[in-house]
């Protein structure tokens, strides 16, 4: 290891901590989010330094890119609604929406209380708060010191699973070890994780319709840019999916690039035709999880165990699952960006 590398690592580590601090402490939320996105990009650099190109791709696309887009979209909606109920009477929940908390007297006193209480930054709340913060800083420093000590006392030889992964890589159907772990050795984790993603969408859709923020017009630059970029993004997604078998890439990276295309498209004001936003959209959303489960069940019926791929089919099955997962991940993430269920045509 050269001196230059050490200096770079130290600077990067310092920059990560500094950016995180700035992002969290910034009084301006917009600036905080932009700094957080910058933090995500530096994280991607750190992953490259740690020989983890797969994570670097995922971080840049999901961690910085999509999370950033989600945060900015939420902030924009927050600002819009903030003008409506700024420091005044809270917006009343729609009628019949609170079956379980019908308690008029308590509700009223509570909202009156909220009217008078100005939201204050926590640091201005007097001596008690200052003492609390001081105590917190001390105890968290102790926590950090303890954890740091624990990390430093780990043996310098990692007792990891590199060797077992390398030994079974041949039989896994792919030659990128990370993809082998994600889709084969620990494929069950990935199955549940697709469930988590889908569940987040169920949750977001169940919150009801958020007032949509329709830009007057996307502007010529965004329009041209998106026309230019979207086909490329779709191509890149396909490439990442394909290359994931033997080089950095795979379903998650590809899916998030696909989602980026979707987000761009949504930003230009495009909306899914109501004919497709019912059944067809739902099918695509569950395709990743669905194909995974179907493959699992078929393999069990053929006499194997859960997600036990016969080595000769492993490559093809993994590609099939990844292709479906890419599509679902991309569309789900784009749908999460939209924030609420697209309006459907006449219900089935």
């Amino acid at each position: 290891m050269t001196l230059l590398q050490s200096v770079f690592d130290a600077l990067l580590g310092f920059a990560l901590l500094w950016l995180a601090w700035q992002a969290l402490a910034s009084p301006d939320l917009f600036k905080g989010i932009v700094l957080f996105i910058a933090f995500g990009l530096l994280m991607a650099l750190a992953w490259v330094r740690l020989d983890a190109p797969d994570i670097a791709l995922a971080e840049a696309a999901i961690g910085a890119g999509l999370t950033g887009a989600l945060l900015l979209a939420a902030l924009a909606r927050l600002d819009k609604s903030s003008w409506r109920g700024f420091g005044r009477t809270p917006v009343r929940p729609p009628e019949g929406n609170n079956r379980d908390v019908i308690h008029p007297s308590k509700r009223d006193t509570k909202s009156a209380h909220e009217k008078t209480r100005k939201p204050k930054p926590i640091t201005e709340n007097g001596k008690g708060q200052a003492a609390f913060c001081g105590l917190l800083v001390v105890s968290l420093s102790a926590l950090a010191a303890g954890l740091g000590y624990a990390v430093l006392t780990l043996p310098s030889q990692a007792p990891g699973l590199s060797d077992s992964v390398a030994a079974s890589l041949e039989a896994s159907g792919v030659s990128n070890p990370v993809t082998a772990v994600l889709l084969n050795f620990r494929g069950y984790d990935t199955l549940l994780e697709l469930g988590v993603l889908l569940l987040a969408l169920f949750g977001v859709w169940s919150f009801g319709v958020v007032p949509e923020r329709r830009e007057s017009s996307p502007g010529p630059v965004l329009d041209r840019l998106s026309r230019l970029l979207i086909p490329w993004l779709i191509l890149v997604a396909g490439y990442l999916l394909w290359v994931g078998a033997h080089a950095p890439g795979g379903a998650f990276q590809a899916g998030s690039v696909l989602a980026a295309a979707g987000v761009l498209w949504l930003l230009t004001g495009w909306r899914l035709d109501t004919r497709f936003s019912g059944w067809p959209l739902r099918i695509i959303l569950v395709a990743g999880l669905g194909v995974f489960v179907v493959v699992a069940v078929v393999l069990i019926l053929m006499g194997g165990r859960l997600l036990e791929y016969p080595p000769s089919f492993a490559a093809a099955l993994i590609l099939l699952i990844e292709a479906a997962a890419t599509l679902s991940i991309g569309i789900t993430l784009a749908a999460l960006f939209l924030g609420s269920r697209p309006e459907t045509g006449p219900q089935r």
Binding site: D100, V101, K110, L192, L199, G203
Partner: peptide, 23 residues
């Protein structure tokens, strides 16, 4: 850990189903 997250997110979504400020 993955099951815990699945559990937690599902539970949160179900709580919010009640609607209203408290829920």
């Amino acid at each position: 850990y993955v099951t815990l997250e699945l559990l937690g997110l599902a539970a949160v979504a179900l709580v919010a189903l009640a609607g209203g400020a408290d829920a």
